[in-house]
């Protein structure tokens, strides 16, 4: 009986620990978006590898695209301030692709988001791309790219 109980405890332990140990690159990317919805930038910071960078492309219907690159920490500082007035931001994942080799992976996610900032509502359509590598046996984002068109109504 004691042996059975030990097996049950062991199985429960493995099941509880399983999702974290087995987190795949696409899971990390999806978790990033969930945390972004909640504006949990401290947790987002923890998903990046040391030295990570962010590239941005902002599309507009009236102007040429704006292209940028910065360190992940700087980007987080900027976006967290920019999103302060945003009361709600719902992100819908529409399509995902993952390519991987033994040491690295790239995940692209097509999304649509909508929300409210002050008196204005907005929609955002884009494709996020995450390049990841393993740091201490955990997939971490080493490069994050956002390619999007944000429109206020």
């Amino acid at each position: 009986m004691r042996a059975v109980r030990s097996i049950v405890v062991a199985v429960a332990f493995v099941l509880a620990a399983g999702p974290v140990l087995a987190e795949e690159p696409a899971d990390v990317a999806k978790r990033f978006l969930q945390l972004f919805e909640k504006k949990d930038f401290a947790a987002i910071r923890g998903l990046f590898a040391p030295g990570a960078v962010v590239s941005t492309v902002d599309l507009s219907r009236t102007e040429p695209p704006k292209v940028g690159q910065q360190a992940a920490g700087e980007w987080i500082d900027g976006i967290s301030k920019e999103l302060e007035p945003v009361a709600f931001n719902g992100i819908e994942i529409l399509e995902t692709s993952t390519l991987a080799f033994d040491q690295g992976a790239t995940v692209s996610i097509r999304f649509r988001s909508s929300g409210k900032a002050g008196e204005h509502t907005f929609t955002n359509e884009g494709i996020d791309t995450y390049s990841l590598t393993k740091v201490d046996d955990t997939w971490r984002i080493v490069r994050y790219g956002t390619f999007e068109r944000l429109e206020f109504q």
Binding site: F101, Q103, G104, T129
Partner: peptide
């Protein structure tokens, strides 16, 4: 070298243009 290229492209008159080219490689 093993790697993955990422191309961010926009349409132009003469075809697609690469606005950002990023790659991860070993």
């Amino acid at each position: 070298s093993d790697g993955i290229d990422t191309y961010i492209l926009i349409p132009a008159q003469a075809g697609w243009k690469i606005l950002q080219y990023n790659y991860i490689e070993r």
